[in-house]
Simulated assay, not measured.
Amino acid sequence: MHEYDEAVLKCFLENQGQLFPENVAENMEEAEAFLEDSMAVVVDGADEVMEYFEETGVDVEDDNVLDADEVFDIGDGRYLIVEA
C-alpha cells in the first residue's frame, strides 16, 4: 500500500481536472483511496518522472514529459504520476 502525504493529496485534489473531465475525489480520504486504487506513484524529481515513463514503455519527448496530463507537480520537487 502506498502512503500519500498531505501535500500529495492536496495537489491531486486541486489539479485533478487536468486529467479527468469531472472530479474523482471531493476530499482527502477520497483522494487517497483513488490514488491507492490507481496505484499512483510519487517520484523525487523530473529525472525520476522520465525514468518512470521509460520503464513503463510510454513514448514521450524529453522536453514535455512534465507537461503530461498524468504528471502533477507537487511543488516541493516531487511529482505525482497518475495513470488514468
Rank of each mutant, 00 (worst) to 15 (best):
F20M: 10
G77V: 01
H2R: 09
V65L: 11
E48L: 02
L66E: 12
F12T: 02
C11F: 05
E83F: 13
A7I: 15
E3Q: 14
L13V: 14
V8A: 02
E14A: 14
M28F: 14
I81S: 00
F53D: 04
S38M: 13
E6M: 15
Y4S: 14
Y52E: 02
F12A: 04
C11V: 05
L35R: 10
V24T: 07
V60R: 03
E54P: 06
A84Y: 03
V42K: 00
K10Q: 13
D69A: 04
E29Q: 15
E29M: 11
E70A: 14
L35D: 05
V49D: 07
L80A: 13
E6Y: 14
E48P: 05
D59P: 12
V8H: 10
E61Y: 13
M1E: 15
D44I: 08
I74M: 03
V60L: 12
P21L: 00
A68V: 01
V71M: 02
E32N: 11
D73I: 00
L13G: 13
A68G: 09
A33R: 10
G45K: 08
M39T: 13
V60H: 03
V49P: 00
E70F: 11
S38E: 14
V71Q: 01
M50P: 10
E30W: 04
E22A: 06
P21S: 05
E36M: 10
M50A: 09
E51R: 06
R78F: 12
I81L: 06
Y79W: 05
A46P: 04
A84H: 08
R78T: 08
E14W: 06
V82W: 00
K10T: 14
D5R: 15
E6R: 15
E51C: 05
E30G: 09
N15H: 05
E83T: 00
A33D: 12
A68M: 11
R78V: 08
A7R: 08
E48M: 06
D59Y: 12
F12P: 03
V71W: 01
D69E: 11
D59S: 12
E32W: 02
M28I: 13
L35I: 08
V58K: 01
I81K: 00
A7K: 15
D59T: 10
A31E: 04
D37A: 09
F53R: 01
D67S: 14
E26A: 15
V58H: 02
F20R: 06
G57F: 10
L13I: 13
E36P: 04
V42T: 07
G57Y: 06
E83Q: 05
E22K: 10
G77Q: 07
C11M: 06
S38H: 11
F53E: 02
E83L: 08
V24N: 02
Q16P: 11
E61V: 06
D59A: 03
E6H: 15
E3V: 14
V42L: 02
T56A: 13
E54G: 06
K10P: 07
A68F: 12
L80F: 02
D47E: 12
A25H: 09
E54L: 07
G45A: 09
E83M: 08
A46V: 10
D73N: 09
H2A: 10
D62F: 15
